[in-house]
Structure formats: C-alpha cells, structure tokens
C-alpha cells in the first residue's frame, strides 16, 4: 500500500504541474500585454512593484514560469481588483460553501445514481431495459442550469416551499443551520440529479457484470431471493468501481457546481469566478481556475487511494496510475 501511495501521489503531482502549466500558457495566449492583466488601476506604485517582482513580469518566459509556479504553490495569487484584498483570502472565504454544495451534490448524485441503477437492473432483468434506459438518457439530456431554474420556478416561486436563491443568513446558530439546509436543498438536488445518470449507467453496467459472476450464481442456487442476492452479495462488489467513478466525475462536479452557484446565487468559488470574469479581475479568475484544477487532481488522488484501500487487486497491478479506469 505504501508503494502504491507514493507512486500515485507522484503521478498526481505531475498532473498538478501539468494543470498549472496549462493555466500559465493559456494566460500567455492573451493577445494584449500580459503584465496589464495584473495591473489594477487602483493600485499604488509600491504594490505594482511588488506584483512585478512576484511574477517577474519583465523577465524572460522561463523565469516567469518558475515564479508563477512558486507563487501559486505558496498560495500567493496577487491582489484582487474588485475586492481590494489578497486573492487567496477572497477565495478561501468561498471554498467552504463550494465544498458544502459539492459534498451535498455528490451525496444526492450517489443516492439518485444508485437508485436509478437498481431500477435499470430490475428492468433489464424483466426484459424491459430499453424504456428505463431511455428515461436515464432523458435525465442525462437535461442541462443543469435549466433544471435548477425549473426547480426554482416550481418549488420557490410556485409553491413557495423553499427559498429561490442564496445560502441563508450568516451565523452558526442552530436556527441558521436549519435555514442553511433549506437553502442547500434545491442547489444540491440540481447538482446531484444532473450527475446521477452517468453514475447510474456505470453502476448498472457494473451490476450486470457482477450478476453474471460465479459467486452470485452460487448464491442464487442456494435459494436466496433475487433481492437478497442483489443487496447482500452483488451490490458491494459492484460499488467498488463507483469510488473510481466518483473520482472521474469530479471535474464535472466542480464545473456543475459553478453553474448551480450562478443559478442559485450561492456565494461559492464558482460564482466568485464568474463575477471576477465580468469585472475583468484577472488575478482572481486565474487563481480560481488554478484552484479548481488542483482540487480535482487532489480529489482524484483521494478517490484512487480509497479504491486501493478497499480493493487490494488495484495496488498489486504493475501498470501505472491508470488501473481501473474504463
């Protein structure tokens, strides 16, 4: 396990550097003067000098790259034009809310995905697979922002049951917690339902594979009811690849969280990034992108390590990090 941990972590580190390099070069693609991107009109000369030194804006590309990597890893992203505060501070304030939303969304996604997969499996067993499959496809065809708007229109404006936007009032009191949950319900549902079909499909395929395996047939031969077979014997092994699937779906989850945050005015990092874009606050946009990429890499690492912890076969394989990926 230890060797696998080292190998996998190293691989993630390389990917992280790749992500940061990609960000660096994309920024350099900007047609105008790149140093202007970091030039906040409201900054005084001392601050401007500090930025210039930190990013090496008047030095050759190679040293700029090194400085960029160094300052990014030190979590020094410069100063935000629109917030007049260090970018790291601004982003740090929004991460907990995005994490909350993403976590809740992931929970809904797994719940709905498992439910749909079980439904698909049942239908397939009964020979009516195509219709159920089409239903899952239909869910897959719904854009998440539109789903969010429809849910708001129905549950908030129409029925008046839930708040249409926001994350609830600030504060940690118990009454606020309940209010926070009320505000979380629709955004998490939107995020989760948008990602559920993908999970459902993979899980259904996995279930199908497992159901035809020997140990399942043995269980059935022993006289256990199909339901008991499914739940007690087939589901657990079928769930193993789900950990990896979760890791794979992280980019979509983070992307989806941005869209959901905009629809529901949820004050997380995604909404911050969009507002930063509209305000032409480049340091903030670049930092958000880098952080989002890094978060996905980190999440993928965690998912793979969890998978390895559960399933010993993964660690022993000789091939590189790409074990278990379809």
């Amino acid at each position: 396990m230890g060797r696998y941990l080292v190998r996998r972590s190293f691989s993630s580190l390389v990917t992280l550097f790749g992500v940061l390099t990609l960000v660096f070069f994309l920024v350099r693609l900007h047609p105008g003067d790149v140093s202007l991107l970091y030039d906040d009109p409201g900054m005084d000369d001392a601050a401007r000098e500090a930025i210039r030194r930190a990013y090496g804006l008047d030095q050759p590309l190679a040293s700029q790259y090194v400085l960029f990597l160094a300052s990014t890893l030190r979590l020094e992203f410069g100063s935000s034009f629109s917030h007049h505060r260090p970018v790291a501070q601004v982003i740090a304030e929004t991460i907990p809310l995005t994490a909350l939303l993403a976590g809740a969304g992931l929970f809904v996604e797994l719940l709905a995905g498992t439910g749909l997969a079980l439904l698909l499996d049942r239908r397939r067993a009964a020979g009516r697979g195509t219709i159920a499959g089409t239903c899952v496809l239909a869910l897959h065809s719904i854009p998440s922002f539109w789903l969010g708007l429809v849910l708001v229109a129905v549950f908030a404006h129409g029925l008046g049951l839930l708040p249409p936007s926001g994350a609830g009032p600030p504060g940690a009191a118990a009454v606020h917690l309940v209010d926070r949950l009320r505000h979380l319900l629709l955004p998490a549902a939107t995020l989760g339902l948008a990602g559920a079909p993908a999970i459902a499909r993979h899980l259904a395929a996995s279930l199908e594979r497992v159901s035809s395996a020997d140990f399942v047939r043995t269980a059935r031969a022993k006289g256990l009811s199909p339901r008991a077979v499914l739940l007690r014997h087939a589901l657990k092994p079928a769930l193993l690849p789900v950990v990896t699937i979760v890791g794979l779906s992280l980019p979509l989850l983070v992307s989806g969280a941005l869209v959901v945050e905009v629809v529901f005015a949820w004050p997380g990092m995604g909404r911050l990034a969009i507002n930063a874009l509209h305000a032409r606050d480049y340091p903030l946009v670049i930092a958000c992108t880098a952080v989002a990429g890094a978060a996905v890499v980190a999440g993928g690492l965690v998912a793979d390590l969890v998978h390895a912890a559960i399933d010993p076969r993964v660690r022993d394989a000789h091939s590189s990090d790409r074990v278990g990926r379809p």
Partner: peptide
C-alpha cells in the same frame, strides 16, 4: 445592511419578509 448577491435576490428577500 445585509449584502445580497443580486437585485432579484433582494426582491425575493423583501417579499419573503427577510
């Protein structure tokens, strides 16, 4: 002075009594 995300959110809040 409560700082909200957008004008539409402010309208919803005043209609909701918040």
């Amino acid at each position: 002075f409560r700082i909200l995300a957008s004008q539409s959110q402010a309208i919803e809040h005043v209609l909701g009594g918040h």
